[in-house]
């Protein structure tokens, strides 16, 4: 009882703090200077129609690099931590069989989901979407495959190879930007092209493709590790 009252006091303190901070936020009438700069100069400097994409890939590219690193670390820690012993014979999983309808439907829908994921990250600089969303959609296509056939073995080597190659290419594109254009992850070393077409915004589509493949591989790795982990490994 006393503990509950203490929790309520803590919550009340937080509530007072947060609502005071709410009083500090400015009026929502016009953009601040940074956002106005992004809105006015962004189309000429980066050439991407989606301003969020241009902020993520170029203006704040280092943040994205850090984020991809964090995600990679999380994925590899999970893989290391939940590693199942794959060499010795393990008992076949006791699961209920899938119905035939779901199997057939999954065979039709899975390639379409993958295609949609690729659409999302190829068009990331024109429409909402981009590498992270496309990667998540690709991972959910893999989840659909696992749902339709729970005893299927996922080949981890392919996932690892795709992830390494795309991560390496992402860094390489950043270094190209540093050597050939203004700075790390600058996209202007390729021609900016016509505004609003597929081949525009310099290297932004390429960077998004690599981010998408990398995030998709990492999330697929997390999901398949969680799916096939065994009880004891130590």
């Amino acid at each position: 009882m006393l503990k509950k009252i203490f929790f309520l006091l803590v919550l009340a303190g937080f509530a007072v703090m947060l609502f005071n901070a709410y009083g500090l936020s400015g009026p929502d009438q016009q953009l601040n200077d940074v956002a106005a700069h992004y809105a006015e100069k962004g189309p000429q400097e980066v050439g991407a129609a989606n301003l969020v994409a241009s902020v993520i890939v170029t203006y704040r590219g280092l943040d994205t690099l850090g984020e991809v690193t964090i995600l990679f670390l999380a994925a590899s820690i999970i893989g290391f931590f939940l590693k199942a012993r794959r060499d010795n014979q393990r008992a076949p999983k006791q699961v209920r069989k899938t119905s035939e309808i779901l199997e057939t439907a999954a065979k039709v829908i899975t390639p379409v989901i993958f295609l949609f994921g690729i659409y999302v990250f190829i068009n990331g600089h024109l429409t909402p979407g981009g590498g992270f969303q496309g990667g998540a959609i690709i991972a959910s296509g893999l989840v659909l495959m696992l749902l339709a056939n729970p005893v299927k073995k996922i080949n981890h080597n392919i996932i690892r190879v795709i992830e390494s190659i795309s991560g390496f290419s992402f860094i390489l594109l950043g270094i190209f930007g540093l050597l050939l254009a203004g700075g790390f992850l600058d996209n202007a070393f390729l021609p900016l092209g016509d505004f609003g077409t597929l081949l525009s915004a310099g290297a932004v589509p390429l960077i998004y493709i690599f981010i998408g493949l990398k995030v998709g591989a990492e999330l697929s790795g997390i999901v398949s590790n969680l799916q096939e982990t065994q009880k004891e490994q130590i």
Partner: peptide, 17 residues
């Protein structure tokens, strides 16, 4: 049209099980 009947079929099967 394609996804909705599949999900309700799988749900009904699980409910019966």
């Amino acid at each position: 049209i394609i996804t909705n009947p599949v999900s309700s079929h799988v749900l009904a099967r699980a409910a019966h099980y």
